[in-house]
Amino acid sequence: MSMDIKQIQDLIKFVSKSGVNEVSIEEKDFKITIKTNQEPTYVTATLPAAMPAPVAAAPTAAAPEKAAPTTPAAPASASGNDANLITIKSPMIGTFYRSPGPDKAVFVNVGDEIAPGKVLCIIEAMKLFNEIESEVSGKIVKILVNDAQPVEYDQPLFLVDPS
């Protein structure tokens, strides 16, 4: 059994409306656990490596001063032979999307010129789709994350040549 993201979202909605605290589904190569405590809904999904795992992560309420910065994608210098390149990193935990929808064109490709304010990708966190805009000018040299792949806070997403 494998579930697509729509089925998982429907399951989350059903669990949150039903008032159940936890639901687990486990098959030989697929496991999903949905836990609710009336406030946020947390989803933990373990899928085979071939399939991207949709992960909805919630920031902990215990440390509000460590919340993700409001400025999108803070650039930082890369090291090694890419020293002249700028690394655009993820400003949050979520799922990386290269386009605004499954049948839509991607925001940027390798070789595209970008400028501050240009939308580079979407990161979906807890059903909120956040457009990530560039803060730098340059040319996309490399896209470091696959479409629909989970990303961590501060994970490198793009390499940009500022020259």
Rank of each mutant, 00 (worst) to 15 (best):
M1D: 10
M1E: 12
S2A: 07
M3H: 09
M3L: 15
D4E: 15
I5A: 03
I8N: 05
I12S: 02
S16D: 15
S16F: 06
S16V: 10
K17H: 10
S18V: 09
S18I: 11
V20D: 05
N21A: 04
V23M: 10
S24N: 12
E26N: 07
E26L: 03
E27C: 01
K28L: 05
D29F: 08
F30P: 03
F30M: 09
K31A: 07
K35M: 06
T36W: 03
T36C: 02
T36E: 10
Q38K: 11
T41V: 15
V43M: 12
V43Q: 03
A45G: 04
T46H: 08
A50T: 15
M51Y: 14
P52E: 14
A53Y: 07
P54E: 12
V55Y: 03
A58I: 15
A58T: 15
T60P: 01
A61Q: 12
A62M: 09
A62K: 11
A63R: 08
E65S: 04
P72V: 13
P72R: 08
A73Q: 08
P75V: 10
P75H: 07
S77Y: 06
N81H: 04
D82Q: 07
A83G: 00
I88L: 14
I93C: 00
T95E: 06
Y97L: 06
R98W: 02
S99P: 06
D103A: 12
K104C: 03
V106R: 06
D112E: 08
E113A: 07
A115T: 12
A115F: 04
M126Y: 11
L128C: 01
N130L: 07
E131I: 06
I132Y: 04
I132V: 15
E133A: 05
S134E: 09
G138A: 05
K139W: 01
K139T: 15
K139I: 12
I140P: 00
K142N: 08
K142F: 01
I143Y: 02
L144R: 06
L144E: 09
V145T: 09
N146I: 04
N146W: 04
D147E: 09
A148R: 14
P150I: 12
E152H: 01
Y153E: 05
Y153G: 00
Y153H: 06
P162R: 09
S163E: 15
